[in-house]
Simulated scan of single mutants.
Amino acid sequence: MNPRTTLVVAIAAVSALALAGCSTSDGPDKTSASGKTAESGRTAAANAKPELSVTGGYMPAPVTKDMGGGFLTVTNKGGADKLTSVTTDISDEATLHETVDQKMKKADSFDIPANGTLELGRGGNHVMFVGLKKLPKEGDKVAVELHFEKSAPIEVELDVESATHNPKSH
């Protein structure tokens, strides 16, 4: 190679290396004005203690003792958590169910995002009560206990509403 070609190749190589160091990605090494990396901010949010509350709990009055559904909203003002199970005295079994492509299937858990909500509602994810010991009627309350991966259990009373009750249609 002649000296001029060698010089051009060397300059191109150095320029490429310099430009590679000027990445605009939001990767883990991106530092904010506070000196924290984006990655450390995400890790802190994920490791923060969950702050859960439950609202809007209801159970449409079941027509038979075979099964019933439970719906509610879990609001989280802290770090991420998971709803892992539900217990109750009203049925032989209470399980978590998800609806995928209009088909129900048992779920192991539901994610509760950091500073987010988990909604269990008609046509979507819900609690399934199988083998009801008594048939609750409109106006009754059904006690359930929600169990989480990180948080202490939360006791909730579901209002028994009409079989056709759907709060989203109001």
Rank of each mutant, 00 (worst) to 15 (best):
K150P: 06
M128C: 06
E155N: 14
A114S: 08
S151I: 13
E157Q: 13
V74K: 07
V144Y: 01
T75F: 07
F71R: 07
K105L: 01
T75C: 08
F129S: 01
G124S: 12
K137V: 13
M67D: 05
A94V: 06
F71A: 10
E98W: 00
L146H: 02
D92F: 07
H147I: 14
L135T: 11
K137R: 14
K141A: 09
T99C: 13
E161N: 04
E155Q: 13
P153M: 13
K103H: 08
V144E: 00
T73G: 09
D101V: 00
A94M: 01
H97L: 11
G124Y: 08
V160C: 02
N125D: 02
E155F: 08
K133G: 02
G70H: 13
D89P: 00
L132R: 08
A107Q: 06
V142F: 01
G131H: 10
G139L: 11
K77N: 14
A80C: 05
L132T: 12
K133A: 04
A143N: 04
A152M: 10
L120Q: 06
R122A: 15
H126A: 14
V127W: 03
K134T: 15
S162D: 07
S151W: 12
A80E: 10
E145W: 06
L158R: 07
E157M: 12
A107C: 08
G123C: 09
H126E: 13
K103P: 00
K105N: 04
T73H: 09
D101W: 02
N125T: 00
E119C: 07
T117A: 06
K106E: 01
L72M: 12
L146D: 03
H147F: 11
I90S: 01
E93Q: 10
I154A: 05
K133Y: 03
D159P: 13
P136I: 14
F110T: 03
K82D: 04
E157G: 09
T73M: 09
T99W: 11
T87G: 03
K134W: 09
E161C: 03
T84K: 14
L146A: 02
E93T: 15
L132H: 06
G68P: 01
S109W: 10
L83V: 12
G69W: 09
G121W: 13
D159C: 08
K82G: 03
E119N: 10
S109D: 14
G116T: 14
I154S: 08
T99I: 11
T117Y: 10
V74E: 05
G68A: 04
Q102C: 12
N76I: 15
M128L: 13
T84R: 13
H126T: 11
L120C: 06
D92M: 11
T84H: 01
D140F: 04
V144L: 03
A80D: 13
V144D: 00
F129E: 00
E119F: 07
K133Q: 04
D140P: 02
S91F: 03
